[in-house]
Amino acid sequence: MDDKDIIVCRCEDISLAEIRQLIAKGHHTMDEIKRLSRCGMGPCQGRTCRSIVAQELARAIGKGIEEVVPSTYRPPIKPVKLDAFLRGEGDA
């Protein structure tokens, strides 16, 4: 299968080809790939794509996947409605 047709990040519609291009350009950190492609920035916050990108990166730079530094897990981790923060105790 053509790597242009393999979707790595479903939230942001990023293909494996795009990830490989960024790595080939010299972006060898999870942070750079995320920030330049939006891969992992969608509502699921990278639940699927993080491990795929880490694998690709590890292979490309000849390291073990455990050596690839993950990007920061940012709160609130799961999407939360603004409304949830507006209620005081007792009106839940």
């Binding site: 969608g42 916050q45 940012r74 709160p75 609130p76 999407p79 409605k81 603004l82 409304d83 507006l86």
Partner: peptide, 11 residues
């Protein structure tokens, strides 16, 4: 109207 919008991430 934004009260039903979901926050995805903060930094």
């Amino acid at each position: 109207a934004l009260k039903n919008v979901r926050i995805v991430r903060q930094w």
